[in-house]
Write a protein that binds this DNA or RNA. Structure first.
Lengths: 166, 166
DNA sequence: CGTGAAACCGTCGCCCC
DNA sequence: GGGGCGACGGTTTCACG
């Protein structure tokens, strides 16, 4: 089910809803150049086929009291598939861990964590992460400041690529 | 304007809209236990005060053809404030760079990048990032697989913290 | 995909506490 | 200050061409 299954109107819908997920369907229909009913049918299809995984309000973490953001590089003792899966499951159970990605190279996982303050994070680090089974090493880096944090994907790159292939 | 300015209903609203940003206002009102008009007034206030920065559809990057996700650790030659700002501005202008965070420790920035394929990324890496002014070193790590990718913040941690302080 | 109609929702003014 | 009620206009979402 590749992106080529989508026509230009579908891609426009995705781009618009990524930029403003609360847009009304009539506004969306106007922007993509069709009337409201077929537009809604397309949105439902995109949701059911998994192109749209959900809709989320973007909240201001700092203003809400999450002052600390940390990237943690984790090395494991065993990289057997079963052990990798166990560690991933642990990460999913930790609220402070928002993202967990398996990497190539010298480190096995990168985790993006948030916490209200440094002591909360350090408690998590020493009491949970470092004590977890199979964890060999953890190197943490504090985010000093954020310069860019765009959700989603760059649709301009997609369009460039599709028009170049055509 | 700290989180303590928010009452439990406001926090519930934020948590619900983070989980489902397209929920209707009447459904939201029902879930937080008030009627629709005051609920909508609260949402507008949360938007205007910056607690809610926007709403976005979450799209499936892989299904859309973005097969490659890469973390890049960037070291700069000069860490003077003016030079940091210039680099951050360059990152904002690159569509493939979705996130750019300044870190403490041995590396200056971490970038999260997406691309349709490896060759697109490598072109970006060699033609743009490595050639950019002031860039001293770049170490890249490919994401082999994603294990967790939750947007937003953990409201359960917020509630624990507030009830503990009370 | 578009049109039309019915049900629902967002939104406002007003009243209440 | 905040919450609830009622009403209007716009929106969602059908069935049908």
């Amino acid at each position: 089910m590749p992106a080529s299954r989508l026509d230009p109107i579908d891609r426009k819908i995705l781009a618009e809803l990524q930029a403003d997920g609360r847009m009304t369907n009539v506004e969306l229909a106007k922007r993509v150049g069709i009337s409201a009913p077929p537009c809604l049918r397309r949105v439902r299809t995109l949701e059911e086929s998994g192109f749209i995984r959900g809709y989320h309000a973007e909240v201001d973490a700092r203003e809400l009291g999450f002052e600390v953001q940390v990237f943690a590089m984790v090395g494991l003792v065993s990289q057997a598939e079963a052990d990798l899966s166990i560690f991933e499951g642990r990460c999913r159970s930790w609220s402070l861990v928002r993202e967990c990605h398996m990497l190539n190279g010298e480190v096995d996982f990168i985790l993006k964590c948030v916490a209200p303050d440094l002591s909360t994070f350090q408690t998590f680090l020493t009491e949970e992460l470092l004590k977890a089974d199979n964890v060999a090493s953890v190197k943490t880096s504090l985010v000093i400041r954020g310069a860019k944090d765009d959700p989603g994907v760059p649709f301009d790159v997609l369009e460039d690529r599709l028009t170049r292939d055509a």
